[in-house]
Structures are given as structure tokens and as C-alpha cells.
Amino acid sequence: MAKVIGIDLGTSNSAAAVMEGDRPVIIPSAEGAGVASGKAFPSFVAFTKDGQKLVGEPARRQASIKAQSTIFSP
């Protein structure tokens, strides 16, 4: 059966939820949740030198030393 998901791209945090039965359940990110945001993760994306993409927590952790290759809303 087709699944319905909802995505919230927030300025600080983002989250995605899937409908399970009649209510939405937030999908936890593989990298773990943000500091004070429950199951949402920080709205950060970073590009590393070897062409990898970092999303959420890992991207936030390296933002201070690689601000030029990190995208976020300060």
C-alpha cells in the first residue's frame, strides 16, 4: 500500500512523519536527534571535500570549522 509522508523543513529543525493508520509518526533520523528537538534533526546540509553529503546532526557538528561548505539558517 502506498504510504503518506509529511516533511517539515524548518529553519532550525526538520522532521519527516509517516502516516501509520490514522496518525502521523515521526521518523527518527539514522544519525540521531538534535539536541533539544526530540525526533527532529537540525536543518543543516554540508558537502565534504570527498564529495559526500552530510545531513542533520553530523552537518551541524562540523559547521563551525567548515562554514563555507555548510548550508544552514543562522
Partner: peptide, 12 residues
């Protein structure tokens, strides 16, 4: 070497 999966950079 800094790895964002395990470390968080606070200062340089």
C-alpha cells in the same frame, strides 16, 4: 582527524 559522526567542533 575530525569526523562529524563522532566529534563536534567547538573551537579551532
Amino acid at each position: 582527524i575530525f569526523d562529524p559522526h563522532f566529534h563536534e567542533a567547538l573551537m579551532q
